[in-house]
Design a protein around this nucleic acid. Structure first.
Length: 591
RNA sequence: CGGGGUGUGGCGCAGUGGCUAGCGCGCAUGGUUUGGGACCAUGAGGUCGGAGGUUCGAAUCCUCUCACCCCGACCA
């Protein structure tokens, strides 16, 4: 490709509003252009990168036995009503109405459509297992698009659906996809960390996300560098320390029976102490000796949440525990309407309110709790002696510094970009969509499904976030828009121009992808553009190199340059690139 | 949806009631240059996001509205 003919311009300054590194660099290098919030065009360079990413994904999935197909973007709204996800997806669904006043959905994902297909074509256990996938545009009306390609409303995604006869089959498909994803990231030169993820309210027993650790990531990953435990903060657990009650510790001989340690409930005045910190410091205890009360509205129902004072509520876990879809903090009005004295509340004596507790309330004894009366708290509150709860489980947020749930070491946290998600769906959707098969005994069973996704644009952005310097992008060879940046200087020189042209032609013949900077620009502009575009290998030809009948060779990622003989340079470069690609497990050339 | 911010040539910005709306980059033409974003000359390009209002006069003041960005909420 001749640079002079290339559509798209490099920009010296990034458009205002582009803040993340990938957004700035992709705009400046002319790879993408924004048309509206969260909606982008791919220009020729960016599109070449995307297509290379796509073909790597396709190759790896095909290798794992996936069959590619193409599902429609336009989907009948009824299909979504059937699965019930018209509600759970809610506002994020793009909907439209056709001329017959028929409601349609712009597909944000394709479980419904694919399961409808499975319903039609899968009748027997002999038809299973199946791995079906597509690479196609998805639409989600995100509340807030951000970060350039990192979070958008229209995006290209590889979505794969697995169909198995049972959980064991699902586990196998899941493991296969997990390995396939690892292969894909390896070929993309992207260090992706696999972490445990929340599987949402619609069931599904297991889910993992692949994260690229970087500052601009939207997700928080909690991990243990000792044993390798890693999870999305939404899902992460931590070992909650048992708090030995002060009094109990004075009488170790009683410690065998927890109930024996329970001291009588006692009301104490705590004037003006509304927060946990105020109460704890007023009474001279640490926050982990207290109960904290937090109030939510879950699908419209008022919920009283109790958790130990040193911990915080993880709303994702709470949502899953409650099996609700809409969850928000209750308003002051709703709290007082429920007859609760904010700041002095506890479940003790509270009636007709749904109470959810974190299991931390059992890890200790004789806590401080609200007396449900302004200005007073209880001493020696104990569960279940003093109150009952409707639900109890782990609903606490894990923090860096907490202990690892697996090995007890200290947990750390980092920010990450989610570049892939594998998900054991189970039978939730197949039951709703009536995708059943007959097993060997002739018994009708729902197909056990999995669903795995990779957002290609986000992947591209994550690679830039992860591989750049202050000059620009540094593309891995496997996905660079071009492999070689041929950079002749002084094109008006009678020797340089024809030799450069010749090298360009020869490289092309060997199948090397070349961006030929045939523009009459100064060296500074050419070098800076080469760096900005991030083409892996730069070949510079100038009167200076011609003095020794040579050409300068430089890797984008490295500082040093070397001079190669001009003779046979095309064959040598071709050999070098193929060797490098092969060492990365990728011998694919995009012609 | 809550909080904050920005809309002025392709991009970045200046311009707080008064002449024909400026500057840098980019673009076009000609010339001199050029190993890390050169220089000179000439030139093209703008209903100042939109609507309404105040005023002799509005990019500038007022009202409404739209778009975009950031933080939060949200994100099977």
């Amino acid at each position: 490709m001749r640079f002079s003919k290339l559509f798209g311009k490099t920009l010296r300054q990034a458009p205002a509003g582009a803040e993340s590194i990938s957004h700035r660099l992709l705009l400046r290098s002319g790879m993408i252009a924004q048309i509206a919030a969260g909606i982008y065009s791919y220009l020729p360079l960016g599109w070449r990168v995307l297509r290379k990413i796509e073909s790597i994904i396709r190759e790896e999935i095909d290798k794992a036995g996936g069959q590619e197909l193409m599902l429609p973007v336009l989907q009948p709204f009824e299909l979504w009503q059937q699965s019930g996800r018209d509600v759970s997806f809610g506002q994020s669904l793009f909907t439209l109405t056709d001329r017959k006043e028929h409601k349609l959905v712009l597909g944000p994902t394709h479980e419904e459509v694919i399961t409808e297909l499975a319903h039609r074509y899968v009748q027997s256990y002999r038809d299973l297992p199946l791995l079906l996938y597509q690479i196609q545009t998805k639409f989600r009306d995100e509340p807030r698009p951000r970060g350039g390609l990192l979070r958008v409303r229209e995006f290209i995604m590889k979505d794969l659906y697995s169909f198995d006869v049972d959980e064991a089959g699902l586990d196998e498909s899941y493991e296969k996809m997990s390995q396939t994803y690892k292969n894909i990231y390896a070929r993309l030169g992207l260090p992706a960390l696999i972490v445990e993820a929340d599987s949402g309210a619609i069931g599904g027993k297991e889910s993992h996300e692949f994260m690229v650790i970087t500052e601009t990531g939207e997700d928080e990953v909690i991990y243990c560098s000792n044993c390798g435990y890693a999870a999305n903060a939404e899902k992460a657990q931590s070992a909650k320390a048992r708090i030995e009650d002060v009094i109990a510790s004075r009488s170790p001989e009683q410690s065998e029976g927890a109930a024996k340690q329970f001291l009588p409930l006692e009301e104490i005045a705590t004037p003006r102490c509304k927060t946990i910190e105020e109460v704890a410091s007023f009474l001279g205890v640490s926050t982990n000796q207290t109960f904290k009360a937090v109030f939510y509205s879950a699908d419209g129902e008022f919920v009283f949440v109790v958790i130990r004072g040193d911990l915080e509520v993880n709303e994702t876990k709470l949502r899953n525990t409650l099996k609700c879809s809409e969850l928000r903090l209750a308003t002051e009005g709703e709290v007082s309407e429920a007859g609760i004295v904010a700041g002095f509340a506890s479940p003790i004596g509270i009636k007709d309110v749904k109470i959810v507790a974190d299991d931390s309330i059992t890890l200790g004894a004789n806590f401080i709790a609200g007396a449900n009366k302004a200005g007073y708290h209880f001493k020696n509150a104990n569960y279940p002696r003093d109150f009952q709860v409707d639900l109890i489980g782990d609903i606490a947020l894990a923090h860096p510094g907490d202990n690892c749930p697996k090995c007890g070491s200290m947990l750390s946290s980092a920010r990450g970009i989610e570049v892939g998600h594998i998900f054991k769906l189970g039978t939730f959707i197949s039951e709703k969509m009536e995708a059943f098969f007959l097993d060997q005994e002739g018994v009708s069973k729902p197909i056990v499904m999995g669903s795995d996704g990779i957002g290609l644009g986000r992947l591209l952005a994550a690679i830039v976030e992860q591989s750049h310097d202050d000059k620009g992008i540094i593309w891995p060879l496997s996905i660079a828009p071009y492999q070689v940046y041929l950079c002749p200087l002084y094109l008006d020189n009678t020797e340089v121009a024809p030799l450069a042209e010749n090298v360009y032609q020869e490289l092309g013949k060997t199948g090397v992808e070349v961006l030929f900077d045939d523009r009459d620009e100064s060296p500074g502009i050419k070098f800076n553009d080469a760096d900005l575009l991030g083409i892996p290998l730069r070949l510079t030809l100038s009167p200076r190199t011609l003095k020794s009948q040579s050409i300068e060779v430089k890797w984008r990622a490295k500082k040093e340059t070397q001079l190669w003989p001009l003779e046979n340079v095309a064959a040598e470069v071709n050999r070098l690139l193929r060797k490098k690609l092969a060492s990365q497990g990728c011998a694919q050339f995009l012609m």
